[in-house]
Protein backbone atom coordinates (compact mmCIF):
# COMPACT_ATOMS: atom_id res chain seq x y z
CA UNK A 1 0.00 0.00 0.00
CA UNK A 2 1.33 3.39 -0.93
CA UNK A 3 1.46 5.83 1.94
CA UNK A 4 1.40 9.59 1.50
CA UNK A 5 4.72 11.35 1.62
CA UNK A 6 6.07 12.61 4.90
CA UNK A 7 6.83 15.87 3.13
CA UNK A 8 4.86 18.72 1.70
CA UNK A 9 5.88 19.71 -1.78
CA UNK A 10 6.11 23.40 -2.56
CA UNK A 11 4.34 24.01 -5.82
CA UNK A 12 6.36 25.92 -8.34
CA UNK A 13 6.40 26.02 -12.06
CA UNK A 14 9.44 23.80 -12.48
CA UNK A 15 10.03 21.22 -15.13
CA UNK A 16 9.28 17.66 -14.21
CA UNK A 17 10.46 14.28 -15.41
CA UNK A 18 8.65 10.96 -15.41
CA UNK A 19 10.22 7.85 -14.01
CA UNK A 20 9.04 4.54 -12.61
CA UNK A 21 9.47 3.10 -9.15
CA UNK A 22 8.81 -0.63 -9.04
CA UNK A 23 6.79 -0.15 -12.21
CA UNK A 24 4.60 2.67 -10.88
CA UNK A 25 4.81 6.00 -12.61
CA UNK A 26 6.39 8.69 -10.50
CA UNK A 27 6.95 12.34 -11.28
CA UNK A 28 9.96 14.25 -10.03
CA UNK A 29 11.33 17.72 -10.44
CA UNK A 30 14.45 18.40 -12.43
CA UNK A 31 17.34 18.91 -10.04
CA UNK A 32 15.94 16.49 -7.47
CA UNK A 33 18.03 13.65 -6.25
CA UNK A 34 16.58 10.16 -6.65
CA UNK A 35 16.26 9.90 -2.87
CA UNK A 36 14.34 13.20 -2.69
CA UNK A 37 12.04 12.06 -5.47
CA UNK A 38 11.26 8.83 -3.63
CA UNK A 39 10.62 10.72 -0.37
CA UNK A 40 8.29 13.06 -2.24
CA UNK A 41 6.45 10.11 -3.76
CA UNK A 42 5.63 8.14 -0.63
CA UNK A 43 6.39 7.43 3.02
CA UNK A 44 7.16 3.78 2.31
CA UNK A 45 10.64 2.37 2.91
CA UNK A 46 12.95 2.62 -0.09
CA UNK A 47 14.74 -0.59 0.75
CA UNK A 48 14.85 -3.54 3.10
CA UNK A 49 18.13 -4.65 4.60
CA UNK A 50 19.65 -8.14 4.45
CA UNK A 51 17.82 -8.90 7.69
CA UNK A 52 14.58 -7.52 6.30
CA UNK A 53 14.35 -4.29 8.24
CA UNK A 54 12.83 -1.29 6.42
CA UNK A 55 14.98 1.75 5.65
CA UNK A 56 14.75 5.07 3.86
CA UNK A 57 17.17 7.92 3.19
CA UNK A 58 18.63 9.26 6.43
CA UNK A 59 21.37 11.86 5.88
CA UNK A 60 20.75 13.05 2.29
CA UNK A 61 24.45 13.93 1.93
CA UNK A 62 26.13 10.70 0.93
CA UNK A 63 27.24 9.54 4.36
CA UNK A 64 24.89 6.84 5.66
CA UNK A 65 24.24 4.66 2.58
CA UNK A 66 20.67 3.98 3.66
CA UNK A 67 19.28 5.44 0.44
CA UNK A 68 20.65 2.62 -1.75
CA UNK A 69 18.32 1.86 -4.61
CA UNK A 70 18.42 0.16 -8.00
CA UNK A 71 18.74 2.71 -10.81
CA UNK A 72 18.31 1.55 -14.42
CA UNK A 73 19.21 -2.00 -13.47
CA UNK A 74 22.24 -1.01 -11.44
CA UNK A 75 21.91 -2.03 -7.79
CA UNK A 76 23.14 -0.22 -4.64
CA UNK A 77 23.21 3.27 -6.12
CA UNK A 78 23.28 6.12 -3.57
CA UNK A 79 19.92 7.77 -4.28
CA UNK A 80 20.81 11.00 -2.53
CA UNK A 81 23.88 11.50 -4.74
CA UNK A 82 22.14 10.73 -8.05
CA UNK A 83 20.06 13.24 -10.03
CA UNK A 84 16.73 12.23 -11.56
CA UNK A 85 16.48 11.82 -15.32
CA UNK A 86 13.53 11.38 -17.65
CA UNK A 87 12.63 7.71 -18.05
CA UNK A 88 14.70 6.46 -15.12
CA UNK A 89 13.72 3.01 -13.93
CA UNK A 90 13.97 2.72 -10.16
CA UNK A 91 13.49 -0.34 -8.01
CA UNK A 92 13.50 -0.63 -4.27
CA UNK A 93 16.03 -3.09 -3.02
CA UNK A 94 14.99 -5.94 -0.83
CA UNK A 95 17.87 -7.76 0.77
CA UNK A 96 21.26 -8.14 -0.85
CA UNK A 97 21.83 -7.23 -4.48
CA UNK A 98 22.12 -9.96 -7.10
CA UNK A 99 25.49 -10.60 -8.70
CA UNK A 100 24.74 -9.30 -12.14
CA UNK A 101 23.62 -5.76 -12.53
CA UNK A 102 24.36 -3.84 -15.68
CA UNK A 103 27.87 -4.52 -16.95
CA UNK A 104 30.14 -1.53 -16.57
CA UNK A 105 31.54 0.00 -19.73
CA UNK A 106 35.07 -1.09 -20.36
Amino acid sequence: MKRDSRFKERQEGVETVQMTLDGDIMTAQIGDSVAAAILAYSANPSRHTAMGSPRAAYCMMGVCFDCLVEVDGRPNVQGCMTLVREGMVLRRQNGLRPISGVQADD
Partner: peptide, 23 residues
Protein backbone atom coordinates in the same frame (compact mmCIF):
# COMPACT_ATOMS: atom_id res chain seq x y z
CA UNK B 1 17.06 3.46 11.71
CA UNK B 2 13.32 3.57 10.95
CA UNK B 3 11.97 5.27 7.82
CA UNK B 4 10.75 8.64 9.02
CA UNK B 5 13.72 9.26 11.28
CA UNK B 6 16.17 11.52 9.48
CA UNK B 7 18.70 14.13 10.42
CA UNK B 8 17.72 17.77 10.73
CA UNK B 9 20.42 18.49 8.16
CA UNK B 10 18.74 16.08 5.76
CA UNK B 11 15.47 17.99 6.06
CA UNK B 12 17.41 21.17 5.39
CA UNK B 13 19.05 19.65 2.31
CA UNK B 14 15.59 18.77 1.03
CA UNK B 15 14.58 22.42 1.43
CA UNK B 16 17.72 23.70 -0.30
CA UNK B 17 17.99 21.22 -3.17
CA UNK B 18 14.41 20.05 -3.59
CA UNK B 19 11.05 21.50 -2.88
CA UNK B 20 10.28 19.32 0.10
CA UNK B 21 9.19 20.65 3.46
CA UNK B 22 9.06 18.40 6.50
CA UNK B 23 5.42 18.09 7.57
Amino acid sequence: ELPGVMTAGAAQILMKSSRLLAK
